[in-house]
């Protein structure tokens, strides 16, 4: 066993192609981004090496810190919403009638591209004839807010579609994980008189713990570098109220032609993700890996 499972040739064969691919396509850009970040460069022609100037600027850049704060808020919201996704997946994986159909319907929105989702939610949030405000006005609210124009609420208004957009992704993963738990385990628990809540918390969740950890990392990292809907729906506005790290990076690099500074933001973002992942792994580390028996 030991010998077979530590066959170097097989390991190399399994790992190297993928490793080489991400070295070329992901690490090369990461290294270059790090390098660009040490330069003043407008993206055209010569670069000027300026050392850590961009990072010094970054530390004093209040717009950057507020966008970083928005990204953290999103990460927090996404993290919390995982609980909701998990609950839905628990219900759908149960033996209820029509679960199969319901599950399919629940996941349909995740097929939509960001373009479509952004258009849909812009129609929902439209200040005068949007779905939401029409509803509020018919309920007697006199002056419902302009959701995407009020700096104080725009961020929350954007979080809703973002969380909704990813619901399918996580429900799908949780659902697959739940379906992967051998039925015999649950059967045994039922015979022992466990109620559904106990089965969920004592059997299902522990068995899914690795999957849950992974989704926490995915959702936090995904949120920290989130860009799509914000870019289309508000472009970081109004007055930077919905600017996040990735959109700020884009604005600096591609709009202001400050590619060096943009790269510094990109690299910093990567470091933030790295630290966040490390902390999550650390906080969720378990002494032993739980296995099906």
């Amino acid at each position: 066993m030991e010998k077979v499972m530590s066959n170097k040739l097989v390991i190399a064969l399994y790992v190297l192609p993928s490793l080489l691919l991400i070295m070329g396509i992901i690490y090369m850009p990461i290294v270059l981004t790090g390098y660009y970040g040490l330069n003043e460069w407008n993206g055209i022609g010569e670069m000027t090496f300026i050392g850590l100037e961009n990072y010094k600027h970054l530390i004093q850049d209040s717009t950057f810190w507020s966008s970083a704060f928005h990204s953290f808020e999103l990460a927090l919201f996404s993290g919390i919403s995982l609980i909701g996704y998990l609950l839905i997946a628990l219900v759908l994986s149960g033996k209820i009638k029509g679960a199969n159909l319901l599950r399919k319907i629940y996941l349909v929105p995740m097929l939509l591209s960001s373009v479509a989702i952004a258009q849909l939610w812009m129609k929902i949030y439209h200040p005068t004839n949007g779905v939401l405000n029409s509803l509020l006005m018919s309920l007697g609210v006199d002056n419902p807010p302009a959701w995407l124009a009020e700096p104080s609420i725009v961020l929350l208004a954007l979080f809703v579609p973002i969380i909704w957009q990813y619901a399918g992704f996580y429900i799908l993963i949780y659902y697959a994980a739940l379906k992967n738990i051998p039925e015999s385990l649950m059967e045994a628990a039922r015979i022992d008189g466990a109620n559904p809540w106990q089965i969920a918390t004592r059997i299902k969740l522990p068995l899914m713990s690795e999957v849950i950890k992974v989704t926490i990392v995915l959702s936090v990292v995904g949120s920290l570098k989130y860009f799509d809907l914000i870019y289309v729906m508000t472009d970081g506005g109004p007055n930077g109220a919905s600017e996040v790290m990735a959109s700020y990076m884009y604005h600096k690099a591609f709009r202001s032609f400050d590619f060096g500074y943009g790269s510094a933001i990109g690299f910093f973002l990567l470091l933030v993700c790295l630290v966040a992942t490390y902390l999550i792994r650390k906080a969720t580390a378990s002494k032993e890996t739980i296995q099906y028996s």
Partner: peptide, 16 residues
């Protein structure tokens, strides 16, 4: 200006 102008694209503003 029309309501919520800071959150509307030019296309949406024009529509008003």
């Amino acid at each position: 200006f029309n309501k919520g102008f800071n959150g509307l694209s030019n296309d949406e503003g024009k529509a008003e």
